[in-house]
């Protein structure tokens, strides 16, 4: 009886381990391939629909498909209007299961953007990330954030405090000043 019972008990465990490890190996390979394949699809999509969204210009690094930059136009009727802001994307190998890291390269005065590092506080870039987002749609979300700042979760406290204290005019003039200083496309 014992001989009969033990091997079964044992076999079941072995099976679980074996299944588990092949799964891990598989998923590591999957991540790398899947992220490249998907970024390539996004690249083709961007090339195809370059004119579809004139406010966003997404460019992939020549040598590294995991590095992208984007130029976005400041939304109209905001202090960022007429400015062009550069974003840097760093895409993780687990993309799209993990969100890309995005930061402003252009200085911007906005409650949800760190003034020095350009780090962006946006839920979809953190815990509200969904793999259905694309780099293009992330850009759109950032444009929406520029138009609708969230002063209650500030990364730039000065900017957040101006808005929270109701000093809309003060906020707008500061933001416009920095847009003029840093985000104006150079002519010629």
């Amino acid at each position: 009886m014992r001989i009969y019972r033990r091997p079964n008990h044992f076999l079941q465990n072995v099976q679980v381990v074996a299944v588990g490890s092949s799964y891990l190996v598989q998923s590591a390979a999957y991540k790398m391939q899947a992220s490249r394949a998907r970024l390539f699809k996004e690249y083709k999509e961007v090339q195809r629909e370059k004119s579809a969204d004139p406010d966003i210009q997404l460019v992939c690094d020549d040598s590294n498909i995991f590095k992208w930059t984007a130029l976005i136009k400041g939304p109209s009727e905001t202090p960022y209007e007429a400015g062009v802001f550069q974003l840097a994307f760093s895409v993780p190998e687990q993309y799209p299961l993990q969100p890309p890291q995005v930061r402003f390269l252009t200085k911007i005065f906005h409650p949800n953007v760190h003034f020095k590092t350009g780090e962006i506080c946006l839920d979809i870039l953190k815990n509200a990330w969904s793999p259905a987002w694309t780099l293009q749609s992330v850009c759109r979300a950032i444009i929406a954030l520029m138009a609708h700042p969230e002063p209650d979760s500030p990364l730039n406290c000065d900017s957040g405090n101006l808005l929270r204290s109701g000093d809309i005019r003060g906020f707008q003039s500061m933001a416009r000043m920095y847009t003029n200083l840093a985000a104006m496309p150079k002519k010629g």
Binding site: N112, D123, I124, S137, R140, A141, E150
Partner: peptide, 15 residues
């Protein structure tokens, strides 16, 4: 910040 962008998904995923 929860509100924006959700509808964008449909357009970006293409067909």
């Amino acid at each position: 910040m929860d509100s924006h962008g959700q509808g964008d998904n449909d357009g970006s995923s293409g067909s």
